[in-house]
Amino acid sequence: MSETPEELHYASSHEWARLEEDGTVTVGITDHAQDALGDIVYVELPDEEQQVEAGAEAGVVESVKAASDIYAPVTGVVIAANEVLEDAPERVNEDPYGDGWFFRIQPDDPGELEDLLDAAAYDEMCSEEE
């Protein structure tokens, strides 16, 4: 059974979003997503200062099986990308909610996080998919 931390927000496209104390939003993919993708071999991240739109493509994750787009869960500006993943994409498999984060956004409107799913709703969606 995959892990779904209570305190995070979830997109139906399997990204998680965490509101940090400084008002930025950290984004990654869920434990369920990394497990479904299998071993991750390559991650394409957005550039710093890139403008991203909620629900629009912001990167790509490639596993041994397939390539999947990563969507920004909120609108804003990318202020950091996890460069560690360039050389160690397996971190996404090992620690999807920690070292395996993808990028951080300065959101235009943090209230957009409320449009996302909570942990229970996300788990329910995943169990319906299976």
Partner: peptide, 8 residues
Amino acid sequence: PLHYGSQI
């Protein structure tokens, strides 16, 4: 089975 845990 596609894999038994980790394909790599």
